[in-house]
Amino acid sequence: MTTKNYEDFRFKIPVESEDYQECSDFVADAIESIVQHAMDADRNKIIINTNLRLGIPMENVNKIAGPFIEAWVCEVFTDTLEDENNVYQLINVEAGERLNMADVILQFKRQRKRQSFVTANVDVKATSKDIKNSGKSPNITSFARIRTAYVKDPDFLFVILSIKHKVYSTRDTKTKMMMGIMEIVDFNAYDLKYISTSDFSYNPALGSGQIQIRDIHYVSKEIRTTWEFCQLLDKKCIASKKGFEGWYGYALQNQWIKETD
């Protein structure tokens, strides 16, 4: 058990680049523009074909929406990358590997002091327009994992892409089988680091705890530094049933604190 207070530790303090906010705004705007373009081009429907004459109960389709929406998002960005008229400066698209924090990793061309690109780790969250409490307090990522990511890379850009959809069914005129249609109807993209204090919470369940957003689709923006966000994450963890000792264990394990002489 430690006898120190939070303020007594010598932290590894992450300091982001001077142009971080500009890059964050640029990426969020580009992502929203790309998704909007797909919707305007009527490429916002996912067709789910089955060999079932009576189709799938629509109230259950939402249970499998996540993987379909993630695949649709990845395809939209890939199509943009391959488009000769790509005006969004998108230069690379990768699907996130299993257990990766991001579902899609994007790189945009942007001239910076030390780099000529900016990388965005995009977490896709599907919410249903048809279900009242859909999108309320979903798990985003592990507390220790995201806290460590910011220490390792102060410019770590983690974007939440909230996709709202509705589902309905229709009969294929040729096969006479029912097919489900998942239609994207709204979206919102924002930097996790900039969501307001009241819009996210810490759930101590599951490992080091989960960062949750109270309403994934509707958030307010609050500009802060990477270090300020790390401190905010710490305080939410300490205020939970994990307490100070629980937080201290994660701090030691993940090397957030400098070694003492």
Results as ranks from 00 to 15, higher is better:
K136L: 10
K136P: 08
I160W: 06
A71D: 14
Y150V: 04
W72N: 11
T80S: 12
P154G: 13
K193W: 01
D153A: 13
I140Q: 01
M58Q: 09
D191T: 06
T175G: 15
D153N: 11
A95M: 09
M178T: 09
R53Q: 04
F187L: 01
T119P: 05
V93A: 00
I105S: 05
M101D: 00
K166A: 14
R145Y: 00
N121R: 02
T119Y: 02
M178R: 06
P57H: 13
D155E: 09
E59L: 15
K113F: 06
I184A: 01
A95E: 09
D191V: 07
S169N: 15
V73M: 12
L192Q: 10
I69W: 09
M178A: 07
I146R: 09
I181L: 04
D123K: 01
R114T: 07
N188S: 05
V159M: 13
V185D: 10
E84F: 01
E59T: 15
T127I: 02
T78D: 11
T119Q: 07
T141H: 01
K113T: 12
F156T: 12
N86W: 00
E97D: 05
Y150L: 10
K63R: 15
F156Q: 12
A120R: 10
K129H: 09
I91M: 03
D186Y: 04
F117G: 10
M178Q: 08
V76R: 02
A149E: 11
F117Y: 08
D103V: 02
K193F: 03
P57D: 11
T170N: 07
G135T: 07
R147F: 02
R98G: 04
N51P: 10
T175L: 13
S134V: 08
M177A: 06
R171Q: 14
F187P: 00
T170Q: 08
E94D: 04
L54C: 14
D83Y: 05
D186E: 10
D172W: 09
N188K: 05
M58H: 11
V118T: 05
R147C: 06
D153S: 13
A95W: 01
E59H: 15
F143Y: 13
S162D: 07
K125N: 03
K176Y: 11
Q107R: 06
M177H: 03
D130V: 00
L157G: 05
M58C: 11
N133T: 00
L81T: 10
V61W: 12
K164Q: 11
A65R: 15
V124P: 06
K125S: 03
F156A: 13
R98D: 10
L106Q: 00
S196V: 09
R147L: 06
I105D: 08
T78M: 09
V73C: 12
N92P: 03
E183W: 14
T148F: 06
Q111Y: 06
R112Y: 12
P154Y: 11
V167M: 14
